[in-house]
């Protein structure tokens, strides 16, 4: 299309205007509102005992979820790429399922399975609190982050094939050695990308977690629940802006990492 200068400028203005109104200006507004009272007030607001407990809980959940997702994610990706078994197509579909499920629906489904009146209610009655406890929040986070590692590792496994692994095996490497020295180095950037996505989503998940958390400040409040509670329950608008700004900072770091990793991956 031979666009005239005028059309081009009009299109550019409309696109940039939309992005400004939808994203850029709101972000400037929240930064301004969070930082205008001074850095001291901001730091004080995000380091209250409740805020510190929320940060710790969020990090604890990430620390539990990431290793589980990495281990099971790699095994799942290997099974999907290399396995020849009946029902492989079905497993493929199941891996993508969490993306299609609303976070609130995830929460309800987990309550129906793990809750006191659910299928696994016996656990609850035996004293192992899943729903309204840490296990529930961990399981909810695993549900929503499950596809990331699998979907990032899978294409790399397809691409590298099995020749080098076969060579290693021929030269006497045990399967374990082959995995550590051939497979893992080959998939490392894909895996890292998957982990970054998992961490970002785990820190940011809200809907699924709020459904299965008791939400007590300082006990079972993650960072995202803290933002919500400060705004709704405490009418502490400033505190909500400040905590949200911390989460936004994390998101920006994630975005930066993703850009760097993307470059690393395409170097191959």
């Amino acid at each position: 299309m031979r666009t005239t200068r005028r059309t081009r400028l009009t299109l550019r203005t409309v696109a940039l205007g939309y992005l400004l109104a939808l994203i850029a200006v709101p972000i400037v507004a929240i930064l301004w509102r969070a930082l205008a009272p001074g850095l001291g007030a901001f730091i004080a607001s995000v380091s209250t005992p409740a805020a510190q407990a929320a940060i710790n809980l969020s990090l604890l959940i990430v620390a539990i979820v990431v290793p589980l997702n990495v281990a099971f994610g790699i095994v799942t990706a290997l099974a999907l790429v290399r396995g020849r078994f009946r029902g492989r197509g079905l497993l493929q579909a199941v891996v993508d399922l969490p993306f299609a499920v609303s976070p609130i629906v995830v929460g309800v489904a987990l309550i129906m399975l793990w809750g006191a009146d659910g299928w696994f209610g016996a656990l609850d009655r035996a004293g192992l609190t899943v729903i309204f406890g840490l296990p529930g929040m961990v399981i909810a986070t695993i549900f929503v982050t499950l596809p990331f590692v699998v979907r990032e590792v899978e294409p790399v496994l397809h691409e590298i094939g099995t020749e080098q692994e076969q060579a290693a095996a021929t030269l006497g490497a045990s399967p374990w050695q082959t995995f550590w020295r051939i497979t893992l180095p080959a998939i490392r950037w894909g895996l890292t990308y998957g982990v970054v996505l998992t961490v970002a989503r785990a820190l940011g998940e809200f809907g699924a977690v709020i459904m299965v958390s008791s939400g007590f400040p300082g006990v079972s409040q993650t960072l995202t629940l803290l933002v919500h509670a400060r705004y709704i329950d405490d009418h502490n608008t400033y505190g909500a802006y400040a905590a949200a700004t911390v989460l936004m900072g994390i998101a920006l770091v994630v975005l930066l990492l993703m850009t760097v990793l993307d470059r690393k991956r395409s170097e191959r």
Binding site: I30, G204, F206, M248, V254
Partner: peptide, 12 residues
């Protein structure tokens, strides 16, 4: 990249 609850607060 932004948590959804942050999206809510940012727009508010």
């Amino acid at each position: 990249a932004l948590p959804t609850i942050v999206a809510s607060i940012v727009l508010l």
